[in-house]
Simulated assay, not measured.
Amino acid sequence: MTTTGPKLIGFAKSRAFRCLWMLEEIGIPYQFIHSLPQSPQVLKYNPLGKVPIFVEEDGFVLYESGAIVTYLGDKYRDTSSNRDSDRNLLLVPRAGTKERGLYDQTMSVIQSELDSQGLWIHRKHEVMGEHFTYIPDAVTHAKKYFNKTNRVLIQQLKDNNNNSGSDGGGGPYLLGSNFTAVDIMYVHCLNWSKTIGWDNKWNDDETIKQYMELCMTRSAFQKASSIKDKDHSSKL
Protein backbone atom coordinates (compact mmCIF):
# COMPACT_ATOMS: atom_id res chain seq x y z
CA MET A 1 0.00 0.00 0.00
CA THR A 2 1.40 3.40 -1.05
CA THR A 3 0.30 6.95 -1.81
CA THR A 4 0.57 6.33 -5.56
CA GLY A 5 -1.02 3.97 -8.05
CA PRO A 6 -4.65 2.89 -8.50
CA LYS A 7 -7.11 3.32 -5.64
CA LEU A 8 -9.07 0.73 -3.71
CA ILE A 9 -12.00 2.37 -1.95
CA GLY A 10 -13.83 0.77 0.96
CA PHE A 11 -13.11 -0.43 4.46
CA ALA A 12 -10.99 -3.45 5.26
CA LYS A 13 -13.55 -5.19 7.47
CA SER A 14 -15.69 -5.86 4.41
CA ARG A 15 -15.48 -7.55 1.02
CA ALA A 16 -12.75 -5.01 0.24
CA PHE A 17 -10.41 -7.35 2.14
CA ARG A 18 -10.60 -9.73 -0.84
CA CYS A 19 -9.21 -7.01 -3.08
CA LEU A 20 -6.55 -6.00 -0.56
CA TRP A 21 -5.36 -9.60 -0.46
CA MET A 22 -5.33 -9.83 -4.26
CA LEU A 23 -3.39 -6.58 -4.60
CA GLU A 24 -0.81 -7.84 -2.11
CA GLU A 25 -0.51 -11.12 -4.04
CA ILE A 26 0.19 -9.21 -7.24
CA GLY A 27 2.52 -6.76 -5.56
CA ILE A 28 1.69 -3.53 -7.39
CA PRO A 29 1.65 -0.09 -5.70
CA TYR A 30 -1.87 0.98 -4.73
CA GLN A 31 -3.71 3.39 -2.48
CA PHE A 32 -6.31 2.26 0.04
CA ILE A 33 -8.96 4.91 0.67
CA HIS A 34 -11.10 4.24 3.74
CA SER A 35 -14.75 4.93 2.89
CA LEU A 36 -18.03 3.54 4.17
CA PRO A 37 -21.00 2.39 2.06
CA GLN A 38 -23.37 5.13 0.89
CA SER A 39 -20.80 7.85 1.68
CA PRO A 40 -20.32 10.67 -0.87
CA GLN A 41 -16.91 9.24 -1.84
CA VAL A 42 -18.48 5.86 -2.61
CA LEU A 43 -21.57 7.20 -4.39
CA LYS A 44 -19.28 9.23 -6.62
CA TYR A 45 -18.02 5.99 -8.19
CA ASN A 46 -20.77 3.44 -7.55
CA PRO A 47 -24.44 4.46 -7.82
CA LEU A 48 -25.34 1.44 -5.68
CA GLY A 49 -23.31 2.94 -2.84
CA LYS A 50 -21.44 -0.29 -2.11
CA VAL A 51 -17.78 -1.16 -1.61
CA PRO A 52 -15.21 -2.20 -2.71
CA ILE A 53 -14.46 0.08 -5.65
CA PHE A 54 -11.30 -0.02 -7.75
CA VAL A 55 -10.24 3.15 -9.59
CA GLU A 56 -7.42 3.09 -12.13
CA GLU A 57 -5.12 6.08 -12.50
CA ASP A 58 -6.77 6.88 -15.86
CA GLY A 59 -10.19 7.06 -14.16
CA PHE A 60 -11.50 3.60 -15.10
CA VAL A 61 -13.86 2.39 -12.34
CA LEU A 62 -14.79 -1.16 -11.37
CA TYR A 63 -16.87 -2.44 -8.48
CA GLU A 64 -17.91 -5.89 -7.18
CA SER A 65 -15.09 -7.83 -5.51
CA GLY A 66 -15.19 -10.82 -7.87
CA ALA A 67 -14.94 -8.58 -10.91
CA ILE A 68 -12.06 -6.62 -9.36
CA VAL A 69 -9.89 -9.61 -8.41
CA THR A 70 -10.46 -11.23 -11.81
CA TYR A 71 -9.61 -8.01 -13.64
CA LEU A 72 -6.43 -7.63 -11.61
CA GLY A 73 -5.39 -11.21 -12.27
CA ASP A 74 -5.96 -10.79 -16.01
CA LYS A 75 -4.24 -7.42 -16.24
CA TYR A 76 -1.17 -8.31 -14.22
CA ARG A 77 -0.79 -11.97 -15.18
CA ASP A 78 2.64 -11.36 -16.73
CA THR A 79 4.20 -9.69 -13.70
CA SER A 80 6.72 -11.86 -11.90
CA SER A 81 4.93 -11.45 -8.56
CA ASN A 82 1.67 -12.83 -10.00
CA ARG A 83 3.09 -16.33 -10.20
CA ASP A 84 3.42 -19.31 -7.93
CA SER A 85 7.01 -19.46 -6.69
CA ASP A 86 7.33 -23.16 -7.54
CA ARG A 87 5.07 -23.74 -10.53
CA ASN A 88 4.99 -20.34 -12.18
CA LEU A 89 1.20 -20.51 -12.38
CA LEU A 90 -1.33 -17.69 -12.45
CA LEU A 91 -3.81 -16.28 -9.96
CA VAL A 92 -6.49 -16.13 -12.68
CA PRO A 93 -6.46 -18.71 -15.53
CA ARG A 94 -6.38 -17.47 -19.10
CA ALA A 95 -9.71 -16.87 -20.85
CA GLY A 96 -10.88 -19.63 -23.16
CA THR A 97 -9.27 -22.46 -21.19
CA LYS A 98 -11.01 -25.23 -19.26
CA GLU A 99 -9.28 -23.93 -16.15
CA ARG A 100 -10.88 -20.53 -16.70
CA GLY A 101 -14.27 -22.17 -17.13
CA LEU A 102 -13.88 -23.90 -13.76
CA TYR A 103 -12.60 -20.65 -12.25
CA ASP A 104 -15.66 -18.73 -13.46
CA GLN A 105 -17.99 -21.49 -12.28
CA THR A 106 -16.46 -21.59 -8.80
CA MET A 107 -16.40 -17.80 -8.57
CA SER A 108 -20.10 -17.71 -9.45
CA VAL A 109 -20.99 -20.30 -6.80
CA ILE A 110 -19.06 -18.39 -4.12
CA GLN A 111 -20.55 -15.00 -5.00
CA SER A 112 -24.10 -15.93 -5.98
CA GLU A 113 -24.78 -18.80 -3.60
CA LEU A 114 -22.40 -18.89 -0.62
CA ASP A 115 -22.22 -15.12 -0.15
CA SER A 116 -25.40 -13.55 -1.56
CA GLN A 117 -27.86 -16.31 -0.61
CA GLY A 118 -26.17 -17.15 2.68
CA LEU A 119 -23.89 -14.69 4.44
CA TRP A 120 -25.47 -11.54 3.03
CA ILE A 121 -28.96 -12.61 4.13
CA HIS A 122 -27.65 -12.89 7.69
CA ARG A 123 -26.07 -9.46 7.53
CA LYS A 124 -29.11 -7.91 5.86
CA HIS A 125 -31.87 -9.38 8.02
CA GLU A 126 -30.08 -9.80 11.36
CA VAL A 127 -27.06 -7.52 11.69
CA MET A 128 -28.71 -4.67 9.76
CA GLY A 129 -32.29 -5.63 10.45
CA GLU A 130 -33.03 -2.12 11.68
CA HIS A 131 -32.60 -0.92 8.10
CA PHE A 132 -33.75 -3.96 6.10
CA THR A 133 -36.27 -5.56 8.54
CA TYR A 134 -35.50 -8.42 10.92
CA ILE A 135 -36.57 -11.71 9.33
CA PRO A 136 -35.42 -14.62 11.54
CA ASP A 137 -36.88 -17.29 9.24
CA ALA A 138 -34.91 -15.91 6.29
CA VAL A 139 -31.70 -16.07 8.33
CA THR A 140 -32.42 -19.65 9.43
CA HIS A 141 -32.96 -20.77 5.84
CA ALA A 142 -29.91 -18.79 4.69
CA LYS A 143 -27.72 -20.70 7.15
CA LYS A 144 -29.04 -24.01 5.85
CA TYR A 145 -28.37 -22.91 2.28
CA PHE A 146 -24.89 -21.74 3.20
CA ASN A 147 -24.11 -25.16 4.66
CA LYS A 148 -25.54 -26.93 1.60
CA THR A 149 -23.43 -24.82 -0.77
CA ASN A 150 -20.34 -25.12 1.40
CA ARG A 151 -20.59 -28.92 1.34
CA VAL A 152 -20.25 -28.76 -2.44
CA LEU A 153 -17.11 -26.60 -2.21
CA ILE A 154 -15.61 -28.78 0.52
CA GLN A 155 -16.17 -31.83 -1.68
CA GLN A 156 -14.45 -29.99 -4.53
CA LEU A 157 -11.43 -29.51 -2.26
CA LYS A 158 -11.46 -33.15 -1.18
CA ASP A 159 -11.72 -34.39 -4.76
CA ASN A 160 -8.72 -32.25 -5.68
CA ASN A 161 -6.77 -33.57 -2.71
CA ASN A 162 -7.57 -37.15 -3.68
CA ASN A 163 -6.34 -36.51 -7.23
CA SER A 164 -3.15 -34.79 -6.07
CA GLY A 165 -0.09 -36.13 -7.84
CA SER A 166 -2.13 -37.92 -10.49
CA ASP A 167 -2.96 -37.03 -14.06
CA GLY A 168 -6.20 -35.55 -12.73
CA GLY A 169 -4.39 -32.33 -11.90
CA GLY A 170 -5.41 -32.34 -8.25
CA GLY A 171 -3.96 -30.36 -5.38
CA PRO A 172 -4.83 -28.54 -2.15
CA TYR A 173 -6.78 -25.62 -3.63
CA LEU A 174 -10.24 -25.16 -5.13
CA LEU A 175 -8.88 -25.44 -8.68
CA GLY A 176 -6.21 -28.02 -7.89
CA SER A 177 -2.51 -27.35 -7.49
CA ASN A 178 -2.69 -23.61 -8.16
CA PHE A 179 -3.73 -20.96 -5.62
CA THR A 180 -6.12 -18.59 -7.41
CA ALA A 181 -8.42 -15.66 -6.71
CA VAL A 182 -11.32 -18.03 -5.99
CA ASP A 183 -9.37 -19.22 -2.94
CA ILE A 184 -9.20 -15.60 -1.78
CA MET A 185 -12.96 -15.30 -2.14
CA TYR A 186 -13.66 -18.62 -0.43
CA VAL A 187 -11.35 -18.09 2.55
CA HIS A 188 -12.90 -14.68 3.14
CA CYS A 189 -16.37 -16.27 3.19
CA LEU A 190 -15.23 -19.01 5.57
CA ASN A 191 -13.73 -16.46 7.95
CA TRP A 192 -16.91 -14.39 7.70
CA SER A 193 -18.97 -17.45 8.61
CA LYS A 194 -16.77 -18.01 11.67
CA THR A 195 -17.43 -14.50 12.96
CA ILE A 196 -21.20 -15.14 12.94
CA GLY A 197 -21.04 -18.67 14.35
CA TRP A 198 -21.84 -20.48 11.12
CA ASP A 199 -18.72 -22.65 11.19
CA ASN A 200 -20.04 -25.55 13.27
CA LYS A 201 -20.58 -27.74 10.19
CA TRP A 202 -17.02 -27.41 8.91
CA ASN A 203 -14.61 -26.19 11.61
CA ASP A 204 -13.50 -29.73 12.55
CA ASP A 205 -12.99 -30.88 8.97
CA GLU A 206 -9.29 -31.67 8.50
CA THR A 207 -9.34 -30.85 4.79
CA ILE A 208 -10.72 -27.37 5.48
CA LYS A 209 -8.39 -26.78 8.43
CA GLN A 210 -5.34 -27.61 6.33
CA TYR A 211 -6.66 -25.55 3.43
CA MET A 212 -7.29 -22.50 5.61
CA GLU A 213 -3.84 -22.73 7.17
CA LEU A 214 -2.22 -23.06 3.74
CA CYS A 215 -4.00 -19.97 2.43
CA MET A 216 -3.77 -17.81 5.53
CA THR A 217 -0.04 -18.31 6.02
CA ARG A 218 0.65 -16.70 2.65
CA SER A 219 2.58 -13.46 3.05
CA ALA A 220 -0.01 -11.53 1.03
CA PHE A 221 -2.77 -12.60 3.42
CA GLN A 222 -0.67 -11.53 6.38
CA LYS A 223 0.00 -8.12 4.82
CA ALA A 224 -3.67 -7.59 3.99
CA SER A 225 -4.64 -8.67 7.51
CA SER A 226 -2.35 -6.08 9.04
CA ILE A 227 -4.18 -3.41 7.04
CA LYS A 228 -7.46 -4.85 8.24
CA ASP A 229 -6.34 -4.72 11.88
CA LYS A 230 -5.28 -1.07 11.60
CA ASP A 231 -8.55 -0.24 9.89
CA HIS A 232 -10.59 -2.04 12.55
CA SER A 233 -8.74 -0.38 15.41
CA SER A 234 -9.59 3.04 14.01
CA LYS A 235 -13.31 2.34 14.69
CA LEU A 236 -14.31 4.38 11.67
Rank of each mutant, 00 (worst) to 15 (best):
T195C: 06
I196W: 07
V109N: 00
K228E: 15
I68A: 01
Y76T: 04
V69N: 01
N88P: 08
D115M: 03
D199I: 05
M1L: 14
D84L: 02
K201A: 07
L174I: 08
V109S: 00
Q222H: 07
R77K: 12
K44H: 15
F32H: 05
H141F: 15
Q111R: 01
S116W: 11
D115F: 01
M212A: 11
K44T: 05
W198G: 08
D115L: 04
Q117D: 10
G168T: 14
Y173S: 08
P52L: 00
T180C: 12
T133K: 12
L48E: 11
E130P: 09
Y211C: 04
D58A: 09
S234F: 08
D231H: 04
K75V: 02
G168I: 13
F146T: 14
N160C: 06
P40C: 06
T207E: 15
F179M: 07
V139H: 03
R77S: 00
G129Q: 10
E56P: 07
G165H: 05
L102M: 14
P52V: 02
D115E: 13
Y134A: 07
E126I: 12
L175F: 08
L43G: 03
P52F: 03
T149L: 05
Q210Y: 06
N203V: 12
S225Y: 11
E25Y: 05
G197P: 09
L157P: 09
W21D: 00
Q210L: 06
I68V: 03
T70M: 02
S112C: 09
Y71N: 02
A16K: 02
T133L: 14
K7M: 13
T2I: 08
F179G: 04
E24F: 05
H188T: 11
D86F: 07
S177C: 11
Q156R: 13
E113F: 10
V139F: 03
I135G: 03
P37R: 06
E57A: 07
T180R: 06
I28F: 04
V69A: 02
Y103E: 03
Y63S: 15
V187P: 04
Y30V: 00
P93D: 10
G129L: 09
V42K: 04
A138V: 12
N178Y: 05
G169L: 10
T140Y: 12
A95S: 03
T97F: 10
L91N: 04
F60D: 08
S81W: 04
G96L: 00
Q31M: 12
A224P: 02
G118P: 04
P172C: 11
Y134I: 12
I68E: 00
Q155R: 15
E24A: 04
L102D: 13
N150V: 12
F146H: 13
L23M: 04
L72N: 02
A16Y: 01
L102N: 14
F11M: 05
G59F: 12
A138R: 12
T97E: 07
H34E: 15
L90K: 02
D115C: 06
T195L: 14
P29Q: 08
S65A: 15
L153S: 11
L43Q: 08
N178V: 13
K44E: 15
P93S: 09
